[in-house]
Protein backbone atom coordinates (compact mmCIF):
# COMPACT_ATOMS: atom_id res chain seq x y z
CA UNK A 1 0.00 0.00 0.00
CA UNK A 2 1.49 3.32 -1.07
CA UNK A 3 0.34 6.26 1.01
CA UNK A 4 0.96 9.96 0.53
CA UNK A 5 0.71 11.99 3.73
CA UNK A 6 0.26 15.74 3.29
CA UNK A 7 1.59 17.66 6.26
CA UNK A 8 1.84 21.35 7.04
CA UNK A 9 4.47 23.03 9.13
CA UNK A 10 3.11 25.61 11.54
CA UNK A 11 4.80 27.95 14.00
CA UNK A 12 4.88 26.53 17.53
CA UNK A 13 1.72 28.15 18.83
CA UNK A 14 2.91 27.99 22.45
CA UNK A 15 5.76 30.32 21.58
CA UNK A 16 3.81 33.01 19.74
CA UNK A 17 3.75 36.23 21.71
CA UNK A 18 1.40 39.16 21.29
CA UNK A 19 2.97 42.62 21.08
CA UNK A 20 1.17 44.64 23.74
CA UNK A 21 1.27 48.00 21.94
CA UNK A 22 0.08 46.78 18.55
CA UNK A 23 -1.74 43.53 19.43
CA UNK A 24 0.16 41.85 16.59
CA UNK A 25 1.43 38.28 16.81
CA UNK A 26 5.23 37.96 16.87
CA UNK A 27 6.27 34.94 14.80
CA UNK A 28 9.93 35.82 14.16
CA UNK A 29 12.24 33.23 15.62
CA UNK A 30 9.38 30.91 16.54
CA UNK A 31 10.32 27.34 15.54
CA UNK A 32 8.19 25.35 13.12
CA UNK A 33 6.67 21.98 13.84
CA UNK A 34 3.97 19.70 12.50
CA UNK A 35 0.47 19.86 13.88
CA UNK A 36 -0.80 17.09 16.14
CA UNK A 37 -3.34 15.86 13.62
CA UNK A 38 -0.66 15.72 10.93
CA UNK A 39 1.26 13.42 13.26
CA UNK A 40 -1.84 11.26 13.69
CA UNK A 41 -2.21 11.05 9.89
CA UNK A 42 1.43 10.04 9.51
CA UNK A 43 1.22 7.50 12.33
CA UNK A 44 -1.83 5.86 10.76
CA UNK A 45 -0.06 5.62 7.41
CA UNK A 46 3.10 4.16 8.96
CA UNK A 47 1.04 1.59 10.88
CA UNK A 48 -0.62 0.44 7.66
CA UNK A 49 2.76 0.19 5.94
CA UNK A 50 4.20 -1.85 8.80
CA UNK A 51 1.28 -4.25 8.54
CA UNK A 52 0.87 -4.63 4.80
CA UNK A 53 4.02 -3.24 3.20
CA UNK A 54 4.37 -0.42 0.71
CA UNK A 55 5.71 3.07 1.04
CA UNK A 56 4.86 6.26 2.91
CA UNK A 57 5.71 9.48 1.12
CA UNK A 58 5.42 12.78 2.92
CA UNK A 59 4.36 15.76 0.83
CA UNK A 60 4.69 19.25 2.20
CA UNK A 61 4.61 22.84 0.99
CA UNK A 62 6.13 25.58 3.09
CA UNK A 63 8.83 28.15 3.71
CA UNK A 64 12.62 27.89 4.22
CA UNK A 65 12.72 25.72 7.33
CA UNK A 66 10.63 22.99 5.72
CA UNK A 67 13.55 20.65 5.01
CA UNK A 68 14.36 20.48 8.74
CA UNK A 69 10.76 20.06 9.79
CA UNK A 70 10.20 17.26 7.29
CA UNK A 71 13.05 15.26 8.85
CA UNK A 72 10.83 14.79 11.90
CA UNK A 73 8.30 13.00 9.71
CA UNK A 74 11.02 10.81 8.21
CA UNK A 75 12.19 9.90 11.71
CA UNK A 76 8.61 9.01 12.65
CA UNK A 77 8.45 6.40 9.89
CA UNK A 78 7.93 8.02 6.48
CA UNK A 79 10.19 6.61 3.75
CA UNK A 80 10.75 9.69 1.66
CA UNK A 81 9.62 13.25 1.24
CA UNK A 82 8.65 15.60 -1.57
CA UNK A 83 8.78 19.24 -0.63
CA UNK A 84 8.09 22.57 -2.28
CA UNK A 85 9.74 25.56 -0.69
CA UNK A 86 8.96 29.25 -1.10
CA UNK A 87 8.79 32.08 1.42
CA UNK A 88 5.22 32.77 0.27
CA UNK A 89 3.97 29.20 0.73
CA UNK A 90 3.28 29.38 4.47
CA UNK A 91 0.52 31.90 3.86
CA UNK A 92 -0.87 30.47 0.63
CA UNK A 93 -4.64 30.18 0.77
CA UNK A 94 -6.38 26.90 0.23
CA UNK A 95 -7.26 27.19 -3.48
CA UNK A 96 -3.73 27.82 -4.81
CA UNK A 97 -2.28 25.40 -2.23
CA UNK A 98 -4.50 22.61 -3.48
CA UNK A 99 -3.46 23.38 -7.08
CA UNK A 100 0.14 22.75 -6.03
CA UNK A 101 -0.61 19.67 -3.93
CA UNK A 102 -2.78 18.21 -6.69
CA UNK A 103 -0.07 18.68 -9.31
CA UNK A 104 2.56 17.17 -6.99
CA UNK A 105 0.33 14.16 -6.29
CA UNK A 106 -0.25 13.61 -10.02
CA UNK A 107 3.53 13.75 -10.48
CA UNK A 108 4.04 11.13 -7.76
CA UNK A 109 1.47 9.14 -9.73
CA UNK A 110 1.45 5.84 -7.86
CA UNK A 111 -0.58 5.80 -4.64
CA UNK A 112 -3.49 4.04 -2.93
CA UNK A 113 -4.33 6.57 -0.24
CA UNK A 114 -3.80 10.23 0.55
CA UNK A 115 -3.85 11.08 4.26
CA UNK A 116 -4.17 14.51 5.84
CA UNK A 117 -5.06 15.86 9.27
CA UNK A 118 -8.70 17.02 9.44
CA UNK A 119 -7.38 20.56 9.85
CA UNK A 120 -4.09 22.36 10.38
CA UNK A 121 -2.93 23.22 13.88
CA UNK A 122 -2.75 26.95 13.26
CA UNK A 123 -5.95 27.76 11.37
CA UNK A 124 -7.96 24.56 11.50
CA UNK A 125 -9.67 25.68 8.32
CA UNK A 126 -10.24 22.12 7.12
CA UNK A 127 -10.38 22.95 3.42
CA UNK A 128 -7.37 21.13 2.00
CA UNK A 129 -8.70 17.57 2.24
CA UNK A 130 -12.13 18.16 0.66
CA UNK A 131 -10.72 20.48 -2.01
CA UNK A 132 -8.04 17.92 -2.87
CA UNK A 133 -10.59 15.11 -3.18
CA UNK A 134 -12.68 17.30 -5.44
CA UNK A 135 -9.83 18.34 -7.73
CA UNK A 136 -8.40 14.80 -7.97
CA UNK A 137 -11.93 13.37 -8.44
CA UNK A 138 -11.33 10.88 -5.64
CA UNK A 139 -13.71 9.75 -2.91
CA UNK A 140 -13.33 11.56 0.42
CA UNK A 141 -13.42 9.84 3.81
CA UNK A 142 -13.27 12.68 6.31
CA UNK A 143 -13.06 13.12 10.10
CA UNK A 144 -11.85 9.55 10.39
CA UNK A 145 -11.39 8.03 13.84
CA UNK A 146 -10.97 4.41 12.76
CA UNK A 147 -9.52 3.17 9.51
CA UNK A 148 -8.79 -0.04 7.67
CA UNK A 149 -7.94 -0.92 4.09
CA UNK A 150 -8.21 -4.27 2.40
CA UNK A 151 -8.96 -5.74 -1.04
CA UNK A 152 -8.87 -2.36 -2.70
CA UNK A 153 -11.46 -0.89 -0.34
CA UNK A 154 -10.96 1.76 2.34
CA UNK A 155 -13.33 1.56 5.26
CA UNK A 156 -13.58 4.14 8.01
CA UNK A 157 -15.59 5.35 10.97
CA UNK A 158 -16.27 9.08 10.67
CA UNK A 159 -16.56 11.10 13.83
CA UNK A 160 -19.39 13.57 13.26
CA UNK A 161 -20.98 15.83 15.87
CA UNK A 162 -24.13 13.82 16.44
CA UNK A 163 -23.27 10.48 14.94
CA UNK A 164 -20.62 7.97 14.05
CA UNK A 165 -20.72 6.96 10.39
CA UNK A 166 -19.20 3.86 8.91
CA UNK A 167 -18.27 4.59 5.31
CA UNK A 168 -16.36 2.88 2.57
CA UNK A 169 -14.86 3.78 -0.78
CA UNK A 170 -12.78 2.18 -3.46
CA UNK A 171 -9.13 3.18 -3.32
CA UNK A 172 -7.45 5.44 -4.19
CA UNK A 173 -9.15 7.79 -1.76
CA UNK A 174 -8.48 10.94 0.24
CA UNK A 175 -8.72 10.45 4.01
CA UNK A 176 -8.71 13.16 6.68
CA UNK A 177 -7.75 11.97 10.14
CA UNK A 178 -8.95 13.12 13.57
CA UNK A 179 -6.71 13.09 16.58
CA UNK A 180 -8.43 10.32 18.52
CA UNK A 181 -7.35 7.67 16.01
CA UNK A 182 -3.95 6.77 17.48
CA UNK A 183 -1.05 7.83 19.67
CA UNK A 184 1.77 9.09 17.43
CA UNK A 185 5.12 7.48 18.21
CA UNK A 186 8.07 9.46 19.48
CA UNK A 187 11.06 8.58 17.29
CA UNK A 188 14.12 7.04 18.94
CA UNK A 189 17.59 8.52 18.54
CA UNK A 190 18.46 5.75 16.06
CA UNK A 191 15.39 6.57 13.98
CA UNK A 192 16.30 10.24 14.00
CA UNK A 193 19.84 9.43 12.83
CA UNK A 194 18.58 7.05 10.15
CA UNK A 195 16.12 9.68 8.92
CA UNK A 196 18.96 11.85 7.67
CA UNK A 197 19.70 9.23 5.01
CA UNK A 198 16.14 9.16 3.69
CA UNK A 199 15.55 11.09 0.47
CA UNK A 200 14.02 14.57 0.51
CA UNK A 201 13.32 15.68 -3.04
CA UNK A 202 12.57 19.34 -3.63
CA UNK A 203 10.34 20.29 -6.54
CA UNK A 204 9.87 23.67 -8.18
CA UNK A 205 6.46 24.48 -9.73
CA UNK A 206 7.90 23.85 -13.22
CA UNK A 207 8.91 20.31 -12.15
CA UNK A 208 5.28 19.41 -11.58
CA UNK A 209 3.92 21.27 -14.58
CA UNK A 210 2.62 24.35 -12.78
CA UNK A 211 3.29 27.39 -14.93
CA UNK A 212 1.42 30.13 -13.09
CA UNK A 213 2.79 31.97 -10.10
CA UNK A 214 0.38 30.59 -7.49
CA UNK A 215 1.08 33.03 -4.67
CA UNK A 216 -0.18 35.77 -7.01
CA UNK A 217 -3.45 33.84 -7.46
CA UNK A 218 -4.40 34.65 -3.89
CA UNK A 219 -8.13 34.90 -3.30
CA UNK A 220 -8.04 35.82 0.37
CA UNK A 221 -6.52 39.13 1.48
CA UNK A 222 -5.99 39.62 5.18
CA UNK A 223 -6.82 43.23 6.05
CA UNK A 224 -5.85 43.01 9.69
CA UNK A 225 -4.78 40.25 12.05
CA UNK A 226 -4.73 41.31 15.68
CA UNK A 227 -5.24 39.77 19.07
CA UNK A 228 -8.76 40.55 20.24
CA UNK A 229 -9.05 43.13 22.98
CA UNK A 230 -9.78 41.29 26.22
CA UNK A 231 -12.44 43.22 28.03
CA UNK A 232 -12.35 41.25 31.23
CA UNK A 233 -12.54 42.64 34.70
CA UNK A 234 -9.46 40.78 35.87
CA UNK A 235 -10.41 40.77 39.55
CA UNK A 236 -8.05 38.30 41.21
CA UNK A 237 -8.89 36.92 44.63
CA UNK A 238 -5.93 35.63 46.57
CA UNK A 239 -5.33 34.75 50.19
CA UNK A 240 -8.16 34.29 52.71
CA UNK A 241 -10.16 31.53 51.05
CA UNK A 242 -13.49 31.66 52.89
CA UNK A 243 -13.74 35.41 52.39
CA UNK A 244 -12.80 35.05 48.74
CA UNK A 245 -15.45 32.40 48.18
CA UNK A 246 -18.12 34.75 49.50
CA UNK A 247 -16.77 37.61 47.40
CA UNK A 248 -16.86 35.40 44.32
CA UNK A 249 -20.39 34.14 44.92
CA UNK A 250 -21.68 37.63 45.72
CA UNK A 251 -20.01 39.03 42.61
CA UNK A 252 -21.64 36.40 40.43
CA UNK A 253 -25.01 37.14 42.03
CA UNK A 254 -24.55 40.86 41.33
CA UNK A 255 -23.60 40.12 37.74
CA UNK A 256 -26.91 38.30 37.42
CA UNK A 257 -25.28 35.22 35.94
CA UNK A 258 -26.41 32.66 38.50
CA UNK A 259 -29.66 30.95 37.66
CA UNK A 260 -31.88 30.18 40.58
Amino acid sequence: MDIIVCIKQVPDLQQIRIKKETREAVTEGVPFLFGEMDKNALEEAVKIKEKSGGKVTVLSIGSQKLRDTVKEALAAGADEARIMVDAAYDTLDSGPKVSLLGAAIRKIGQFDLIFLGEGSADNYSGQTGPRLAHTLKLPLLSYVKQFEASNGMARAVRNMEQSLETVEAKMPAVVTITSGINQPRIPSLMQILRASKKPIIEWKPADIGVAVDLPSQRQISVVSNLAPVEQRKGIILEGAVEENLDTLVNSLVKEGVLRS
Binding site: P11, L13, I16, I18, R23, E24, A25, T27, A121, D122, N123, Y124, Q219, I220, S221, V222, V223, S224, N225, L226, A227, P228
Partner: peptide
Protein backbone atom coordinates in the same frame (compact mmCIF):
# COMPACT_ATOMS: atom_id res chain seq x y z
CA UNK B 1 -5.65 32.41 13.32
CA UNK B 2 -2.54 31.17 15.12
CA UNK B 3 -4.58 28.76 17.16
CA UNK B 4 -6.89 31.53 18.34
CA UNK B 5 -4.25 34.07 19.37
CA UNK B 6 -5.45 36.56 16.78
CA UNK B 7 -8.54 37.34 14.76
CA UNK B 8 -7.91 37.94 11.07
CA UNK B 9 -10.27 40.11 9.05
CA UNK B 10 -10.02 39.15 5.43
CA UNK B 11 -11.69 39.92 2.14
CA UNK B 12 -12.31 37.41 -0.64
Amino acid sequence: TFGGSTVASASI
